[in-house]
Design a protein around this nucleic acid. Sequence first.
RNA 1: GCGCCUCUAGCUCAACGGCAGAGCAACGGACUCUUAAUCCGCAGGUUCUGGGUUCGAAUCCCAGGGGGCGCACCA
Length: 507
Amino acid sequence: MSTEPTSPAVPGEEDTTTTLDVLIAERRRKRDSLAARGLDPYPSRFDRSALAAELHADHQGLEADVHTGVVAKVAGRITAKRGHGRLSFAELTDPTGSIQLLMQESNLSESAQAVLDATDLGDWIGAEGEVVTSRRGELSIDVGELFMLSKALRPLPDKWHGLTETDTRYRQREVDLLANPDSRRVFDIRFAVIAALRALMAAERFVEVDTPILQPQAGGALARPFLTHANALDIELSLRIAPELYLKRLVVGGYERVFEIARNFRNEGIDTRHSPEFTALEAYQAFGDLDDGMDLSERLIVGAAEASTGRLTFRVGDKEVDLTPPWPRLHLLDLLEAKVGRRLHPSDPVEDVRAVCGKFGVEFLPTWGSGKLIFELYDAVILPEVTNPVFIVGFPIEVSPLARHSADDPLMADRYELCIDGREFVNGYSELNVPDEQDERFAAMAAAGEGDLEVPPADAAFVRALEFGLPPTSGLGIGIDRLVMLLAEVEAIRDVILFPMLRPEQA
RNA sequence: GCGCCUCUAGCUCAACGGCAGAGCAACGGACUCUUAAUCCGCAGGUUCUGGGUUCGAAUCCCAGGGGGCGCACCA
């Protein structure tokens, strides 16, 4: 035991030892003290016999000071220590909860005592002993053997306040997860949602597939892609912005029900609701139309909510959202008529629709047609009013280049969006399966959006696939991150993404 | 991209023009029933970085960096 060299050695020589260095050195010293006794501070394995939650469940309602005669081996991180001389308490936390370790010097083996002396908050510890209750009635392990499973060299954040600095929480998510139970709760919901969606889709006889992320031409949405380069082929590639076109090619190929839980990449703004990489479930169902798609959306979201949280009502800000089905299905043009006081239609002269936009403070570009303007009006005056889920049905063809036009209206598409709390959660439609029409729409888009970085060139391979015949198909996409935000009741998309994109740390 | 806010000990936060402090964690000590244990003692700082104003700057000003929020684009 020696004093740490914390004082400057030579005048003029820079002393860069920080508090953190001293804390780490202290933990290294304890680790080395174990090694010196022949105790491996990083052993290869440990046999756990019980989880904290199991112990609490199996020994409910015991009196104080009870000896059960049951021996258990537990493992986890030390999250609190309370020493009393020759008696110590510690809290050991595993993924299911915490269990108290009761350590009496008289009961501890010699090696257990050495491990106890070398234990800091944050260490991975294994403990073996009888399940008892303390004199105050707390369920505990009366420890006989104690094992260092992995020595933590860095100190943990404050046990009471946790880690609050958002920067650190995102950059060192592992620390956030081990220090902040609420962060763990959010991600538990996320992965329960994804597992539930997979199970629900399997039950609906959808096949899960995976399609290229590196694509010669990103399509299926309007967005600026990330670009990269393939050395072997010496070609430019894009990261996908949506899996849509490949999935429909699989339906052409005979996969009548397919889905992909797809990471998509869009090289655009980052804010509370947008992340450059985000996750969407896209599903395509042959012989279905938009009503089948809305039915499926409803089953998936209700099922995922129940499986991950057991609830159907959620707080969002100061509002409550109720997901209890069935959800209303309302036509976009009807809603707009009620809101703006006149019936609008994509066939209206563009000056008329612009006038309505002006009246409601909706800004627009001169290149936009009546259909796009109607969509913008919807975004500005309909969406923000929505709280509980509502399917909004019928969108202008002008903003739906991959959707089938309505049977009775060539300027409107059989497309719907599911809106909750002012946001779009699902976008779905009856797929356009007429190859010539698709080709024309690509060409029209390219012409209208010349110079626009978001408009992709026509996808010839996709059109060729349509020429082999795409059956009538219902397609939909669900934003997983937003769904998790709703179910976990958090405000920022970065709180539901484990390692969100940030500027790299300075060296 | 533009605007506003923020950065102090390992963590959580004070000090807001006048000696940089507290709690937790650490370190030394007391304690066999605590559970945010308690008590005594001790230590811990490039106040994000660089300039400037001032007798004096963590504090005010300028520039830069990280992060957050809002607006715009987008899902």
